[in-house]
Design a protein around this nucleic acid. Structure first.
Lengths: 133, 133
DNA sequence: ATAGGAGTTCCAGTCACTGGAAGGTCAAGC
DNA sequence: GCTTGACCTTCCAGTGACTGGAACTCCTAT
């Protein structure tokens, strides 16, 4: 199967698939004309990668997850550790964003948003407490 | 004032301050020895930038906000529009992350996390529906 | 005089792609 | 047989917002 067809099936752009080969996540064969030739195992890996990336795992996480996936003797604890660490980071990022959202939402509601120059948003950016204070 | 002192007061690393000069957000004067010399106006801008960046505004947003801040005749609507657009993006990102968190949380709880190889996390990454399906 | 802690510039690297140029290959239609 | 157009190839550069490091100068204290 050529890269275009594989891309459709995996839901990844061809560029990304070439990139994944570059960094050693997959190693498709080559046809006589130099075209990449993807086996079922390559397809499976790409689908796995697409899903892992969609869940926000880093490429290095994906590399490790793929290795565990390949390893029939893995301990599920190793997989779980990666996922749990990632989950913790997601939760921390959500908390950060929620704090930002609350502040931002207050500011937007406090601002008249008309032709006049007076603006609580700018006033706040000018004076609000920050790390440095 | 030298860059180190300014960095402390603004809560930004010296490297970042130099970078902000590079991209034209500030233009401090120079002393005879070549050191940057920051005026009060530079300090205010840097504090403004630190706060805006902490709220997740992009550098280009910050550039626009700074320009509006400088403009006594601005319409608060222009400021509000930038903040509102940014707020919308934050909210969308929060929603994305919450969906990921929910999936991930389910997976982590479903996985025994022991020495056995059987792992619902890997099973799901192998087969869960994705964009491509 | 020297040691250290400032400051300076410039270049390279981060992460995970993405765009674009320049060129080779293949299948279909004339 | 030739062209057209869609596909494939490689390689290089750019993204955002810094950050690390090298190589250098400058200032202050001992």
């Amino acid at each position: 199967m050529n890269i275009g067809e594989v891309a459709k099936q995996a839901g990844l752009p061809p560029k990304t698939i070439r990139y994944y080969e570059d960094i050693g996540l997959i190693t498709p064969l080559r046809d006589a004309n130099g075209y990449r030739s993807f086996r079922d195992s390559d397809m499976h890996k790409l689908a796995f990668l697409a899903r892992s990336r969609a869940l926000g795992f880093t490429i290095e996480d994906c590399r490790n997850l793929l290795a565990l996936w390949d390893d029939q003797d893995r301990a599920s604890a190793d997989v779980r550790a990666i996922a749990q660490e990632h989950l913790a980071q997601i939760e921390s990022k959500i908390a950060d964003l929620q704090a930002i959202r609350d502040t931002l939402s207050n500011l937007v509601h406090a601002c008249a948003g008309d032709h006049r120059p007076d603006c609580p948003i700018l006033n706040t950016l000018e004076t609000m407490p920050s790390k440095a204070d």
